[in-house]
Each structure stands twice: as C-alpha cells, then as structure tokens.
Design a protein around this nucleic acid. Sequence first.
RNA 1: GCGGAUGUGGCGGAAUUGGCAGACGCGCACGGUUCAGGUCCGUGUGAGUAACAUCGUGUAGGUUCGAAUCCUAUCAUCCGCACCA
Length: 838
Amino acid sequence: MNERYEFQEIEQKWQKIWAEEQAFKTVEDYDKEKYYTLEMFPYPSGKLHMGHVRNYSIGDVVARFKKMAGYNVIHPMGWDSFGLPAENAAIKNGIHPAIWTDSNIQDMHDQLNGLGFSYDWDREVATCKPDYYKWMQWLFIELYKKGLAYKKENPVNWCPSCATVLANEQVVDGACERCKTPVTKKNLSPWYFKITAYADRLLANLDKLPGWPDKVKTMQRNWIGRSEGAEVVFGIDGYDNDLVVYTTRCDTLFGVTYMVLAPEHPYVKDLTEGTEYEAAVNAYIQECAAKSEIERTSLTKDKTGVFIGKYAINPVNGNKIPIFISDYVLMDYGTGAIMAVPAHDQRDFEFAKAFDLEIIPVVDVEDPEVDLNNLTEAAVATGTMINSGQFNGMNNKDAIKAMIQFLEEEGKGKATVNYKLRDWLISRQRYWGCPIPMLNCEKCGWVPEKEENLPILLPTDVEFTGKGASPLTTSKTFGTGVCPVCGGKAEREYDTMDTFLDSSWYFLRYCDAKNDEKAFDKKKVDYWMGQEGVDQYIGGVEHAILHLLYSRFFQMVLHDLGLVEAEEPFKNLLTQGMVIKGYTDADGNYVKAKMSKSLGNVVSPAEIQEKYGADTARLFILFAAPPEKELDWSDEGVEGSFRFLCRVYRLVHEYITKIKGDQTPSAAIEIKTADDKQLNFVLNSTIKKVTEDAGGRFNFNTAISSIMELVNELYRYKASAEMNLPLFNEAINKMVIVLNPFVPHITEELWSCLGHDDRLYSAEWPKYDEAALVKDEVEVIVQINGKLKDKLILPNNTSKEVVEETARELDKVKEAIDGMNIVKVIVVPNKIINFVVK
RNA sequence: GCGGAUGUGGCGGAAUUGGCAGACGCGCACGGUUCAGGUCCGUGUGAGUAACAUCGUGUAGGUUCGAAUCCUAUCAUCCGCACCA
C-alpha cells in the first residue's frame, strides 16, 4: 500500500477496472426488484459544469446505494443532442452539427467517466442519431393517427434571433427563453400536439405524486391553470351572430356595463367594415400588432381601447351595452371576449375610469371600508347580491350557481371549464432536429410517411445561414417524396421537431436502447418502469414546467396507446439546488450568485479534479448542503473534504499490517472494555444513520458527517490502552463500505488493500446491530420549569419513580425546590425529568 | 397583485416524533511535532461573566410542564406566475 493518497493513480486504476469488469452493466432480471435511477441527460455542449457534477453525483450515490442494498439498478446516461448550439456553431465555424456534436459527446463521456459515475454505457442514447430519431418519427405518426397532432395556421411566437417559432412554454417574460430576444408574432402554419386534451388528467394526476416537490406540482397546476366558470351568450344589436364570453363571475351579470373583444377577434372586421368607426378600429389593431409581447404585457397600468360603434344585449335584463376592443383582452384565452363588470373587476374598473363608463355595484361586499357608491377600486370580496332582480339577497357564491342554472334554462349559457394551457407548438424552422415525417400531397393533403421508409434522414447538403426559412428547404435532395396514399408526388415537411419531444421519452428508450425493430419492448419497459415510473429522477428545477410536463403528457399518451404500463413517468423527483459562489461586484460588495462566466465566479470541475481528485469533488458537493438547497461553493470546504479523505487513507495505512487478513467473524468479536463498547456503538449508529440518510431521505450531508464522526471515533479509539484489533478491523472495513457510494475510487482501493478480492461496487450493504445501539447507561436531563439544571447518568430504562427519587437528591434540585410548591413532575424515560414549581 | 418557499454562531449547515440548540465541516485561537513554514496530532470556540447568573434560532404575541419545531400577526430575502376575465 502506497504511503500517500495518490488520488490520480487510484482513480484511473479503478475506472479502468470497472470498465474491464463491466461493473455497471445491468440486465433484466424479472424475478428481482428493480430500481430506476435517472438523472436528466445533458445537452452535449462539450464541457461539464458544476451543476452537472452535482446532479450526477447525487444520482450516483443513489444508484450505488440501491445496488448495494440489493436492487437490480438501472442507471443510464445519454445525450439530448439535437438543438441550436450545434447549428450556431456550424454557422459560425463551418463545422457540420453532427461532427461538432459527436466530438462533444466523446469529450463529455470521458469527463463523466473521470468522475467515476456508475453508468451502464450499453444503454447510451443520443437523440440526434437515426437509430433514436427513427422511433421519434414513429411516435409522431402514432400521435398523428390518434388525432393528437394537427397543423393549424396561427399567429405564433417567433424569435427573430433564433429564427424559429417557440412553444408557449419557451416564452419567458415575452422573450425567448434561450436568447432573451423579445418575441414577435408571425403567421405560420405549424404542427401542434393536443396536450390540452390531457389538461384535466395532467392536473388530477399531480395528486398521485407524493414523491414530487410541492413547488413543482404547484407550478404545473398554475401553468395548466384550470378555472371553472360559464359561457354566457350576449346578443349583438343589428348582427346575426351571438357574442359568447367566458366568466368566472356569473353572479355579476347585472353589473355588466360594457363588453370588450380582443383586437384579433374575428367579429371585429365584420362589425366595423364600412362604418365611421372602421378607421379608428383598424388603427388600434395595427398599433397592437406592432407591439412586442413585452410591450403588451409590461405596460400594465394604462388601459387603451376603441369603441366599435355596436351594442350587445345583456341576456339577464336586456340592457344595451357598448362594445369596445382592447388589448387587455387576450384572443387565446376563453372566447377572446369578455363582459366587463367595473364594480367588481379591477381591470374593468380601470378601463371604465379611463373611458368614463358606468359602474353598477351588484354585490354588497362584506367590507366596511368599501363605499359602493364611491368606489376607488373594484370590490372583489364576497357579499350579498343587490341590483340583480330575482337574485337580490342571495350570497354571491350561491348566486353563481343560480345564475348558471338560469342561463342554462334560458339557453343563454352553460357551465364550462377553461385552461391556461395551450396546445404544444412543436415545429421549428431549424436544421438540427428530428425531421417531421409528414408529406403534403396535392391530392391527399397532409399524410404520414410509411413506417418502412423511416427514418426520414436529415439531409447533409444544407446551407447554414441562420436566416430565412427552414434550412431543409435549401437541400436539393430532401424536399420531394412519394405520397404513401396515392403514390403521387408529395412535398416533405421542412420544419423539424422541438427538441423537447426527444427528451419526452428517452427514459423509455434506455430500457431497450438497442432495439432496431421497435421503439422499445413493452416487457422490458414495464419491468424497469414498473407501475409508477422511474424510481428516482434528479435534475434542475428549471425543467419544472417544460420537460416535466411534456414527459408526463407523452407517458400518458403512450399508456393510452398500450405501449407502456405506467401512466406517470417519474415516481419520485428531486430538484437539486443551484451551485452558487460568492464574488465581489462592481461596487465592491461581496455577493453570492449562480456560477456564470459573465460574473467570473465559475469553478471548473476539471481543475478541482486535477488538484484534489474526483472523490474529493464528489464528497464536497454532497457534504456542503442538502441536495435540494443551493450549494455555496467554498475552496476551503473542498480542502476540508480532501483532508478527510487523507485522514481515512492514513488511518488504514497506519494499521494495514496489523489488521490485514484478520479473519475473526463479526459474531466472534468480543466487546470487552468501555472503549470497545463506545466504538461499537458509534459504528452501528453510523451504519444506521447512513442507511437512513443516504437511502431514504437523501440527506447526504448528514450521512457523510456521521461517517466523519466514526472516523474521529476510530482515531480516539486507537489511542486507547487495550486495542481490540478484530473490532478495530471490523469498524474500519464497515466504514470503508458505507463510504463507498460517495467516494467510490478511494474506497475500492482501501478495500483491496485490506485484503479483499471482491469489489465494493457489488458488495452488500452492512446491517447494523440493534443490540449495539442500546446503551447501558443513559443521560437524563433534569429541568426546573423547563430550564436545564443538571444531568443524571442512570441505567437504561430506569423507572419514572426511581428517576424522580434520584433527581430530588441532586443539590441543584434541592436548592431550586426549597420553599417552593411542586405542582407537577414530568418524566420521559431515558430522556428528561421536569419539575414544575411555584 | 397571486402562488410557493426560506430566515439558526464569523461561514456552510445539524437538531427525522414538541424534550440538552449549534452535530459535522470551514474559519479562528492555543498547545504538541518541526531548524522553520506547511502538513499532521490534540484542546478550545453562540453572546455574556472573574465565575455564576442570565440572554440566545428574523420580529411581536400565543398554546404547552417544555417550542428552532405548533398557532396568529408581522418584517426580510429568494423563486415561480402574472391584464387568464
């Protein structure tokens, strides 16, 4: 055994051995209980960052622990390898995206191996490879056949910088989620997935996911945005069509004093054409269209709009009320039209004030501060109905139901449910993505490609300019195909798929990654996924809505298609916190922020690995904070972790010649002295703690701290007079095993040095001895009125009576109760005695 | 505005069921080892006091024999959503 901890030598040695021995290869064993550990696969940018290292270190501990605990563990890794950076690199450097991506994958593959992660590389997938995207295309067609994919012309979100459309979910604060460029509207005819058909199920199933963080579930609930209300039918004076609005406040129908349509509402042209209002209305529509999403949503205060010269008729009282258009009404929510009740809706109130419109209160709210005749803001509290005909006197909550019933009887409305969730726009006008396997035939219209013609390969004769239409249109070979229905000439779809499709089912492909006949075998997927999906999914919270919602949608669809058993993809979800680091800002203040190149507070995994080794990097990351919290990077902390590993290494080295090969079986180890007893106690409580913390609650920081306590105890013990070598040996061996999931290289090395021929990666997790955890003597806290006064050392399980008797004899207790009345004595055996005195 | 979280030493954090607040690590101080520095080993380290007392988990109340933990109010910070009718 080397005297010094030569981490680089050790790490390389064991990585080589693991590869040679195929240590992490997993095969289906249908009789054995499985455990699916999954970390979000990376985009192959070429370099790992600390966020990756944290994500994968957490996953690796889980995988290694569960394997040692006896599960058949699947722990795969792959590449989310379609996407814009590759294409941008191609535009900039003239390297083909495939070459750029392949080389990055190779580099990152090596970096992951360098950190000692226990992946089964036989299951590796890369979404940009034809053997993966063939099945992506197949799945697209399956969705199309089910009526879940459709093409529709629409004004869509367009990122001028990325030169592509974006899904609703990819627009953040009116800007492109990726490049922050303000999004504009463009009329296109993209493909959509009908995710709204699953809105209710996506919402309801969240209640069946207790293993997900509330934060993520709440975000998804808000995003789906279910709201219960009613559609109300208004007539329009001098127009044949009815005007349907959506409202959650049916109770306020008597308070409607005007109507508003979205500027894009289809009636607007009809209602104003050839009238004196046409010019002003068109001018306003132009003005709105020119505004970017940011301008339209950020200037929230000032309400604008135009009267269109027509009147609607209130179905409950026949009142004629003016119709306006305004951009505070959105075309893509509800019906694109609203009934305005300025007395009870703040937005309507602001608009009514700006346009000097009538305000009629219809709910006498339970708020003494509100003067209904002189409102300063909308009155939104609950209350009693007024000015509402036969509904007067009702509680307004009840009036909602009564009003809906009334409308339904009159044929003037019905109860409905609305969602904020929109259908998923999946077309992208870019090259580096999966081609959409659809053809447009002059005779037959849009038809799916034949299955035997899949995959539709990405052409290589394409120009990358970053401008204009989809790059696939520049290929001379790609565009024409044969109509699978009539055999005539058909034109291919030139757009590619959103890369979020690729990542919506990759975890299923891992279960059967090499299948070239199907997307995956159902039996294999059902084994690994089970009834409830991936056992533990780990990744950043930034995917709370996009990826995690899309994947749930996909899984449900595939479940409905009979392709998989599980209805939800991820049983348990852990969202790890960001890696942050302090730095001094321009004003000289020390602040903490997420590691980023622009702030200059980045620590690269490579430099840490070179200086201290992969084990130290992993240990520090796992020790410094619980996984779901932010991780504050500290260079001193890293050194502390390194020191700990040196300390462990030295301890083994110092005693290696004495304990190596000791064959005393655990059962034959005698516990003789008090020191022995103490060491045995610490050893077993550490095993218990690590088992619970690393295997159950995933609090790796406390698991590691308890192993540190064991090491400290071993250092204390070796100084004791009568060292019990078999016990010491046992403690060191078990310490090395429980440390293994966190720092696999050094522990394999020490295990081997200790004379074992087997490997820790396939070792059995140690059990703790309950008997060793029972102490002969316990410390009992003595309190007077809840304040600590003294401590008693008593035999374990001393009766309440004896505890009280003993405690009364203590000087400090005598002193405190002298001349006082003992009101009550509370005794919790083995823990505490409290005298309540007056 | 709505929703979700989080507030504990000089710092990262622990306290899993209401029962010794501050485990473990960093930092700092002192001692040993060393020619010396570093390493390593050991001791100490919430405030306060000569020592006790006492005070102490954002703030103010409350429940309880007993509260970091439960309840009410409030402040601060972070995150998400946001003209969703």
